[in-house]
């Protein structure tokens, strides 16, 4: 478990709050979802509806099931009970549905998981070419567009091993965006980064939020949560313990567990 690095809100790029709009159409619906690892009950009665344009931050102590929760949304983990609908498609063991959902949902991992044997550009064009059947030239143009957006177009011909952690994570974001996803999942995107690189990744995510992307982000960056999120969810022991708007969540937590967690993570 990486140490949380709370970044001060004032250090982040200014957020244009007027651009952050939430629609009333649901993007993800999770109903009475339960998951077990063998005997261990990891996720218990999860009910969560995510509307299009929402930016949700999920936090909680290590082992609370927050990563498992978002990994269920693109079926990297299988749930045993309840229903998950992503953009109206229910996740079952039907491989066709799973592949469809996965191509609509982008995911950014803690350890970037770039493909080390491919160049940055090839990392970004691979899925559009093979999954979306985009012509190579068009895929490359799209990839360059998103690489410019995450501010590293000049690295396109290099290999991931030649980039810094922050750059690799921004490539990972660009790689997901190249599939033109409707929803982005972030699994502790800054936990493996040095403090000076966290900001560049968070700024990229803020820019993404301003474009109206539906995002669920597991993170300990409370500054980011306060600046960007419209909802903060606190999980403990595999259940949603508290959720609220960021302001109320941070300044007026209700549950004792939340209070304890916040006092530990914010360090006062």
């Amino acid at each position: 478990m990486a140490e949380p690095h709370p970044v001060d809100v004032s250090e982040l790029a200014p957020v244009h709050v007027e651009k952050l709009k939430v629609s009333d159409e649901p993007a993800i619906e999770i109903v009475d979802m339960n998951k077990w690892y063998g005997q261990f009950h990891v996720l218990r009665d999860i009910n969560l509806t995510v509307y299009k344009g929402e930016r949700i931050v999920v936090c909680g102590p290590s082992g609370s099931g927050k990563s498992t929760l978002i990994r269920c949304i693109n079926r990297l983990e299988e749930h045993q009970k309840g229903r998950i609908l992503v953009d109206g498609v229910e996740l079952t063991s039907d491989l066709k549905n799973i592949d469809k959902v996965r191509s609509e949902v982008g995911m950014v991992f803690q350890h970037f998981n770039l493909f080390p044997h491919l160049t940055i550009l090839e990392n970004c064009t691979l899925a559009p070419i093979w999954v979306r059947k985009t012509p190579k030239k068009e895929a490359e143009e799209t990839a360059m567009h998103f690489l410019r957006k995450v501010k590293i177009p000049e690295q396109a011909a290099k290999y991931p091993g030649q980039l810094s952690g922050g750059q690799q994570q921004r490539v990972a974001i660009a790689r997901s965006l190249c599939m033109k996803p409707k929803i982005m999942l972030f699994d502790e995107p800054t936990s493996a980064l040095d403090p000076e690189m966290i900001k560049e990744v968070l700024d990229t995510m803020i820019a993404l939020a301003e474009e109206g992307m539906t995002m669920i982000c597991v993170t300990h960056e409370m500054g980011f949560a306060q600046a960007v999120a419209n909802r903060v969810i606190f999980m403990d022991q595999g259940q949603i313990v508290e959720q609220n708007e960021p302001k109320a969540f941070f300044h007026n937590p209700q549950n004792e567990r939340t209070k304890l967690f916040l006092s530990q993570i914010l360090g006062h």
């Binding site: 469809k100 996965r102 191509s103 995911m107 770039l114 493909f115 691979l126 093979w130 999954v131 790689r175």
Partner: peptide
């Protein structure tokens, strides 16, 4: 996981 998450079969 990255390959799966991108929708590759």
């Amino acid at each position: 996981e990255a390959a799966d998450a991108l929708g590759l079969d």
